[in-house]
Design a protein around this nucleic acid. Sequence first.
DNA 1: CCCATTTAGTTGTGAGCGCAACTATTGTGA
DNA 2: TCACAATAGTTGCGCTCACAACTAAATGGG
Lengths: 155, 155
Amino acid sequence: MSRTDEKTNWLNKTEMAAWISFIETIGDLQYSLDSDLRESCDMTFGDYQVLVYLSESPDRRTRMCDLAARLNLTPSGLTRRLDGLVKEGSVTREVSTEDRRVQLAVLTPQGHRKLVAAAPLHVASVRHRFIDRLTTEQMKHLAAAFTSIREGLSE
Amino acid sequence: MSRTDEKTNWLNKTEMAAWISFIETIGDLQYSLDSDLRESCDMTFGDYQVLVYLSESPDRRTRMCDLAARLNLTPSGLTRRLDGLVKEGSVTREVSTEDRRVQLAVLTPQGHRKLVAAAPLHVASVRHRFIDRLTTEQMKHLAAAFTSIREGLSE
DNA sequence: CCCATTTAGTTGTGAGCGCAACTATTGTGA
DNA sequence: TCACAATAGTTGCGCTCACAACTAAATGGG
């Protein structure tokens, strides 16, 4: 890499180690977690997140736009993700009676059963891939670090 | 979430805080870094990584399979990523004289200039989104944590 | 009260990438 | 040496998702 630009504040050893360890790990980690869920429960991590959020919502239903904001998806991305869940019977769509523009995503009993079956396996996967590799101190440091990063991103 | 399964070792508060802070941040962070690079240099983070690795390789060229392994891409994924870089003139393909099965990805002078132009801007982006939010201590903890996680993944 | 603006969601299109199937080349054991 | 296995890379296909354009409904200022 060229070092001719004296203005550039290149990363030092500590900074580089943090950055490289992070960026080279997250891809594998996400892939492992998604694979675990696909193999054990035939669902993606994205679908799992939808089911979790719906199960925690009042009446197990949510407005699409709230769901999209929560999951960091664009409206179109959420529409397509819901399409898959509707087709397999885990979710249904209902038009809101208060505002007929909004579609409510509703968790079906079948979807709830699928989530209840998946949750223990997913937690085991998260432990195996992530939690078990960290000490309690590391977890606390990590939470503080990522909370700080996220706050910076939302400026 | 159902708690009827007594066997399941659910996450405690510290574990949950670490997991949630991590999983809800990385998507935004990756998106921000990619957007920065698209806007300032008209390239993706994936393309940037290819150019960096080629620039660090002997004769600025690498076997496709080595590149794929390094970037955690499947062969087909790498073929398509290279297609884009070849089309824009940053990379060319050469058949290896030693093994005619292998294609060498070669960084062109134009590709090298593009990388040299992009690097300071990308480093600034990484600082702004990631490094600047962390203390030196946090960086050291984070490097240790992710190194540990990555070692676990490669078992 | 009505038309312009805003908001919710869907659809067309295209990018990125994994999987499976395929070709081409090299290595290997009988 | 020759058939079979292993390896390198590409292509067809499907999935996920972002962007832009669109429809429909609600809102708000004149």
